[in-house]
Design a protein around this nucleic acid. Structure first.
Length: 279
DNA sequence: ATTAGGG
DNA sequence: CCCTAAT
């Protein structure tokens, strides 16, 4: 009943600003869904984005005593690459952030050249999340992989690796990321608690929807198998390094990823007519 | 289903 | 932030 009145963090505001610059005013849903900003704004709704933008605009407009005079208010539709005429160049990353590919390190398309001004400090966070989202590595990605990914997409300074490390550390401290061994993973936030129990999005690409019959049983088996695997992996790294905390969440995430991969793998094999045994 | 505006 | 009207 109470109204916690969720406070907007600088991270969220920055993400919103960047989103508006990239997609244009309006298009709140796109901004919210964009993989680059989703990790900051997934707790907000498109309506929330609109409201916040209105507030920000009115605050920065007339009396911005201690507010930055970036002045993004001029409707910003003159130079935006997206909001030009009527088309919606929507761009690169697929709407469905599900890239189940063994080697997902290939450069995508990136029609829009992302020129980094080199003066965007909080923008690095977005890059990190973009990298982790795109890489989709179940075990997480190490610093080198992340740096490599970002270097392909953006121009980065020479000491970028150091900056990246700092950023990663900060994000881990903020519970936005999770570090296991040398790898970093995206961490789920307040999805638990009141509403939004678990956005379990099992996206299966309907390559050839014909094996719908045994999908059900496959899932059952996959769950069991995946659990076993996850358990083993869990024990492995627990023994390797007496981890500190947040192990429960890590385990859950690992299980989900493993299960999804397993299911897809088995589904593919079955589609080819092969018989698969679950040990 | 999304967006814009008023409360 | 919530609610409501208009695309």
């Amino acid at each position: 009943m109470g109204n916690p009145k969720q406070k907007w963090t600088s991270e969220e505001e920055e993400a919103l600003r960047a989103g508006v610059l990239k997609h244009g005013t309006g298009k709140w849903k796109n901004i919210q869904k964009d993989p680059e900003f989703n990790h900051f704004l997934f707790t907000r709704s498109n309506i929330d984005l609109k409201d916040k933008w209105r507030n920000m605009s009115v605050s920065a407009s007339g009396q911005g005593p201690r507010e930055k005079s970036r002045t993004p208010k001029t409707k910003a539709n003159t130079d935006a690459p997206s909001a030009g005429t009527v088309s919606n160049p929507q761009n690169s990353s697929s709407a469905a952030p599900v890239t189940v590919d063994a080697s997902a390190d290939a450069i995508m398309d990136d029609a829009s050249k992302n020129i980094l001004d080199g003066k965007s400090a909080p923008r690095y966070n977005a890059m990190i999340f973009e990298a982790l989202s795109s890489l989709k590595e179940p075990n997480g990605s190490d610093t080198s992989t992340i740096v490599n990914f970002i270097e392909q997409r953006y121009e980065v300074p020479q000491n970028f690796r150091r900056l990246l490390s700092s950023r990663l550390r900060r994000l881990v401290a903020q519970d936005k990321l999770e570090k296991v061994q040398n790898c970093y993973k995206i961490k789920r936030d307040p999805s638990f608690g009141t509403k939004t129990p678990t956005p379990k999005q099992k996206d299966i690409r309907p390559r050839q929807s014909q094996s719908t019959d045994y999908v059900a049983s496959i899932e059952e088996a996959a769950v069991a198998a995946a659990y076993k695997v996850a358990e083993a992996e869990n024990k492995s790294f627990v023994a390797a390094e007496a981890v500190k905390e947040a192990e429960r969440v890590a385990k859950m995430a690992e299980e989900s990823e493993a299960m999804l991969q397993f299911t897809l793998e088995i589904l593919e094999k079955c589609s080819r007519g092969e018989v698969v045994y679950i040990a």
